[in-house]
Nucleic acid binder design. Sequence first.
RNA 1: CCAGACGGCCGGGCAGCCGCUGGUGGCAGGCUUGCCUGUCGCUGGAGGAAAGUCCGGGCUCCAUGGAAACAGGGCGGCGGGUAACGCCCGCCCGGCGAGAGCCGAGGGAAAGUGCCACAGAGAGCAGACCGCCAGCCGCUUGCGGCUGGUAAGGGUGAAAGGGUGGGGUAAGAGCCCACCGCGGGGGCGGUAACGUCCCUGGCAUGGUAAACCCCGCCCGGAGCAAGACCGAGUAGGGGGCGCGCAUGGGCCGUUUCCAGCCUGCGCCCCGGGUGUGUCGCGUGAGGGCUCCCGCGAGGGAGCUCCCAGAGGAAUGGUUGCCGAUCCCAGCAAUGGGGGAACAGAACCCGGCUUACAGGCCGUCUGGUCAU
Length: 127
Amino acid sequence: MARTDESKAEVVRLTVRPQFLFVRGGLSERRKGLVIQARLRGDDRLHIGEGFTATKKTGNAVKRNRARRRLKAAARELLPRLGVPGADYVFIARMDTAGIDWQRLLDDMESALISLAASLRQGSGTA
RNA sequence: CCAGACGGCCGGGCAGCCGCUGGUGGCAGGCUUGCCUGUCGCUGGAGGAAAGUCCGGGCUCCAUGGAAACAGGGCGGCGGGUAACGCCCGCCCGGCGAGAGCCGAGGGAAAGUGCCACAGAGAGCAGACCGCCAGCCGCUUGCGGCUGGUAAGGGUGAAAGGGUGGGGUAAGAGCCCACCGCGGGGGCGGUAACGUCCCUGGCAUGGUAAACCCCGCCCGGAGCAAGACCGAGUAGGGGGCGCGCAUGGGCCGUUUCCAGCCUGCGCCCCGGGUGUGUCGCGUGAGGGCUCCCGCGAGGGAGCUCCCAGAGGAAUGGUUGCCGAUCCCAGCAAUGGGGGAACAGAACCCGGCUUACAGGCCGUCUGGUCAU
């Protein structure tokens, strides 16, 4: 499959609570190492939004920090290549995120992003 | 060397690649001339507990200042340290330990009130169940009954109205005596808590004050979502109702007094920013080294360093090597496995408390061996 736009889209961090709530109303993909939510913003701009969350269930503050940092590091590698321009993504840490094998985490994120991209391009992401 | 006590310190290391954030420098660009953007360097970047948010402060805002009383809260051997403390140091007293040491909310219970279950005859103006003793009566002698004395013994209890020993006595009892304890007075040592000695009294004073309480000392409230700045803007404006036009009313726990200030007061409704940015926000009761004073907590002087400042929240992700206890095998040398505890700054300090794999250093105690 030949990628038409080789220029990677700019990635912007989601910062306020309403942005997270908006994405929660969109699509969701669950893997062993993480959960990804995604939703097309519906505006004209082409940047990709990214946000990271770890709930109290993930563990204490150290475990939550580690899980969120691993998600950020993985997203930095994968999201510019696999993310859909104009969509916002929220990466949610699970119990295994901090301890899972690094390559497995990358594989989980890649497969989730690919299937989300397929759904988004079909137009069901705007909801 | 083994066992133990106390104090202090550390709490994974190195390298490669790719990132984040603060500071700083070069270059380029922009313009409102001191900032912004891009890029390339250099450099700082979690803890001993960053935690719990339990105390004490700084700082900020609110409150007109002072005094007294009351209310509420806290503290409590003595002396010292400190900005301060409920913290720390030294000492005293009591308890525990063979010892090094450890533990103690450690003022007042003969001001008052409350409480002290069960058991027990009796539990706070004490108390005769058994026993002991005396007298009288009955009777088969040691037995039984009645009356009285007695707190030495038994029994109950967490605790039985000073303890031990002797005298004394019908049996006993601070009834008397010695020592201890307790109360009062005095001498000496100590800044003091207290210690010690002498005289004296009489055995009257159970425990509980993290029960009320009494005594002494201390204490305004809220917190960085404090608070400040920019934007037209945080303060005022308009309306209604009630009371009032003064010897009134208000000024932050309450009341009173003194001084001062303000001027209608109270309630309700309407309209007027709704959301970021910047500051606060890292030079501080600051760290390191040396010297001096002090038993110590700590204090002083000199030199030197700048040492995290995020904001859905940076301080990392990943790979390789080395790796402590630990687990398995083995008498051992050793081989294999495994791969670091508790835990993440959010205005900042001083403490306390709690969590924590493992390691290092020093001082001391007891034991063992050698000399």
